[in-house]
Design a protein around this nucleic acid. Structure first.
Lengths: 121, 121
DNA sequence: ATATTATGTCGTATGTTTGCGACATATGAA
DNA sequence: TTCATATGTCGCAAACATACGACATAATAT
C-alpha cells in the first residue's frame, strides 16, 4: 500500500490531525467497510478463474456497482487485474493483504492490555 | 457483539444480500474506519484514567464530535463507560475487542491462499 | 466492416457520515 | 438554592458513499 496510497479520499480536513498509524488503519478499514468488497475478496480467495464477469454474477449488485467496488479494492492495492484479451483476470494481491493483516495485528496488539477498570464488561 | 449489534446503520437495501460474516466484518471495519475512533481506542489502551474529558483533550476535534465517536464505539461494544459521580470512565471492552480480532483473523486466514495468478504483484 | 462480448466511466438520485454550535441534563460545591 | 463542571443530544450544513442506467471503449468473431 501504503506508500503510494494517498490519503485523500477522506477529505474532512480534521483527518490530517491524527497520527499516521491511525490514518492508515482507518483507510484500510474503510475499504473493508462494505460487505460487497469483503465478499469480492472472499470470492477471489476461493475461485481460480477470477474473471470480472464471474465476480459480477456472484455479487448481488449491478455490474456497474461491482465494477466500482473492484476499482476501490484495486486502488487500495488489495487486488490487481490482468487483461487477457477481452477479459480481465482479477486476483488478490497477497503481499498487500499480508501488510494489511500485519497492520491490524499491530493495532490489536496495542489494544490488548490489562486495563484497570473494575468491570471489564 | 455481535448478537445484539444490529445491522441497521447501513440501510442500503442490498446489504442484506450478503453472507453474515461479510456483513459482520464490514460493520466492524466501518467502526474502525475513522482515525478519531482508532486514536480513541489507542488512547484508552495506554491511559489509566479513561475520563471522557481527557479523551476530548487528546483528540483534535470538538467535544461534541468526540462524544459522538465515543457513542459509536460504545454501540459497537468496543468500549464501555461507567458513571463516577460527575465524570464518566470509559475503557476498552477487552472481550469484544478480542472477538473483533478473531473475526478479522478469520477473514485474513480465508484470504491467505496460494493463488494461481502468474504475477502476484 | 459490423456485430458481439467484456469491461470501464459518467451523471445523478438518494442515503450516510462528519463536525460543530446550541441546548439539555445531572452531579456536586458554595 | 444557585452555580460551575462534565457530559450527552439535537439539528443543521457540507462532504462522502452507494447504486445503477446509459454511454464509451476495446478485443474478437463473422
Amino acid at each position: 500500500m501504503f506508500a503510494t496510497y494517498e490519503i485523500d479520499t477522506m477529505t474532512y480536513s480534521k483527518v490530517i490531525n491524527f497520527d499516521l498509524q491511525s490514518q492508515e488503519i482507518s483507510q484500510l478499514a474503510k475499504v473493508l467497510s462494505h460487505p460487497a468488497r469483503i465478499a469480492i475478496l472472499k470470492f477471489l480467495a476461493k475461485s481460480k478463474t477470477c474473471i470480472s464477469g464471474d465476480i459480477c454474477n456472484e455479487i448481488p449488485l449491478s455490474r456497474t456497482t461491482v465494477s466500482q467496488h473492484l476499482q476501490e479494492l484495486k486502488k487500495a492495492g488489495l487486488i490487481h487485474g490482468e487483461i487477457e484479451g477481452i477479459k480481465i483476470n482479477y486476483c488478490l494481491c497477497q503481499s498487500n493483504i499480508k501488510k494489511c493483516y500485519m497492520l491490524f495485528n499491530e493495532l490489536f496488539d496495542e489494544l490488548d492490555v490489562e486495563i484497570n477498570c473494575e468491570d471489564n464488561c
